[in-house]
Design a protein around this nucleic acid. Structure first.
Lengths: 110, 110
DNA sequence: CCAATATATGTCATTTCTGACATAATGTCA
DNA sequence: TGACATTATGTCAGAAATGACATATATTGG
């Protein structure tokens, strides 16, 4: 969260911390979720970059539109496995996946 | 596979290719399996580095000795999720995990 | 060699993930 | 506005992953 926004909310009476704090996540749980969100976000970027609808991507992945929507939304019912396999099918390399995984996701920044 | 060894086997009548070729894996499937194997290997290294038995690690992970054995063996019944969560609990960072994931695994080298 | 310890392998009930479907919500364009 | 396309959300039966257990197979130290 941008510190300006944080300050603004605090002024209005909100106690604002990280998402991890709010959800009472351990560092490991946070890292795990951050990784999934980073992949989710990238999946959507990749799809849009290729001008595909969720339906079309679903066909490529032999999945369904609703599952693609859940993947992109970071739904907890979606596994790392599915995200990784999907991105590989979309053409990501191990190296590029690694890069994605190592980069922080804005919603979780301290 | 080292090319000297490869040549030797071919001389004896073996048709030797990559593991991926033998198993008829697509590039995506290969990459996925390579990533799992890289994590498996690292999990074992981490465990041994801490001088833990599989039983002790299992307790840390709230899992069982047999599942730890399967994780380290790269058993197909083990998910990326489990490997990643385990390594995070063992203290790996997202960055170090990314590094592991991006590095090739010997058994799959072309 | 024998014990003791550690690791591997097989199986299985329970839990979790998945694709599929229906339908709601949102967006787009004339 | 309204039809049409796209995306989001809820649900569920079937598939896959998980922990646990038994037991087999190393491995280690006398």
């Amino acid at each position: 969260m941008r510190s300006a926004k944080k300050k603004q909310l605090e002024t209005k009476g909100w106690k604002v911390g990280t998402v991890a704090e709010f959800l009472q996540l351990s560092p490991e749980e946070s890292a795990y979720i951050e990784m999934k969100l980073a992949l989710s976000k990238n999946l959507q970027e990749r799809r849009k970059g290729k001008s595909l609808t969720q339906e079309q991507l679903a066909n490529l992945l032999k999945s369904s539109q609703s599952r693609v929507a859940k993947m992109e939304a970071g739904d907890p019912s979606v596994s790392l496995d599915l995200l990784v396999r999907s991105l590989l099918i979309l053409g990501e390399s191990r190296k590029s996946l690694a890069k994605i995984l190592s980069e922080p996701h804005s919603a979780f920044a301290a």
